[in-house]
Amino acid sequence: MALKAAILPVTPFQQNCTLMWNDETMRGAVSDPGGDLPRIKQAAAEIGVTIEKILLTHGHLDHASAAGDLAKELDVKIEGPHEDDLFLIEALPDQAAKYGFGPVGTFRPDRWLKDGDTVEFAGLTLEVRHCPG
């Protein structure tokens, strides 16, 4: 079993969204889906990955703005970011309008993450390192 990853530049900012998966089960997670949901879903379909979780490293617009919509579409949970980023998540609709991202819905993560936590998907476990700033 190996962790595989594909980097998907998304949003007008071209930030790195990451599709990660277990190469045996072809189940995985998306980290930082800031936008361009059709691109993310197409990449997962082309590779053959079933997305079972969304992970957020932080709440900036280009990393989190599509997380709520993707979670609803795929019926999956959102884990992260750290609870200190709540104000950023709450500001996503205003930030999206300011930077021309189109309409962005609000969401609350199903689980906040902190240093030392672990996240699991597709039989894989990752450890959280809190790196603010």
Rank of each mutant, 00 (worst) to 15 (best):
M1N: 05
A2Y: 04
A2D: 05
A2T: 07
L3M: 08
L3Q: 03
K4R: 09
K4I: 01
P9I: 14
T11S: 11
T11I: 07
F13Q: 09
Q14R: 10
Q15F: 09
N16V: 05
N16W: 11
C17P: 15
L19W: 05
M20Y: 05
M20H: 04
D23A: 06
E24I: 04
T25C: 03
T25A: 05
T25L: 08
R27L: 10
G28C: 06
A29M: 12
A29E: 08
A29I: 10
S31G: 14
P33L: 10
G34R: 11
G35S: 13
D36G: 15
R39V: 08
K41E: 12
Q42G: 10
A43H: 10
A43I: 08
A45W: 15
I47P: 12
I47T: 11
G48H: 07
T50E: 10
I51M: 11
K53H: 14
I54K: 04
L55G: 09
L56C: 07
L56M: 08
H58R: 14
H58A: 10
G59S: 15
H60T: 15
D62Q: 10
S65E: 06
A66M: 14
A66T: 09
A66N: 11
A66L: 10
A67F: 04
A67I: 06
G68N: 04
A71N: 06
A71S: 13
K72T: 09
K72G: 04
D75K: 11
I78G: 04
P81T: 05
H82T: 03
D84R: 15
D84V: 15
D84Y: 10
D84G: 08
L86N: 02
F87M: 06
F87W: 07
L88W: 02
I89Y: 00
I89Q: 00
A91C: 01
A91W: 00
P93A: 01
P93Y: 01
D94Y: 03
D94P: 00
Q95V: 00
A96H: 00
A96D: 00
F101T: 00
F101A: 01
G102Q: 02
G102C: 02
P103R: 03
G105I: 03
F107I: 04
F107S: 01
D110V: 01
D110A: 02
R111V: 03
R111W: 03
W112I: 02
L113I: 04
L113C: 05
D115K: 10
D115A: 14
G116H: 15
G116I: 14
D117Q: 14
T118F: 07
G123V: 08
G123S: 09
T125A: 13
L126M: 14
E127F: 07
E127A: 13
V128N: 14
R129C: 11
R129H: 15
H130E: 13
H130D: 09
H130T: 12
G133H: 14
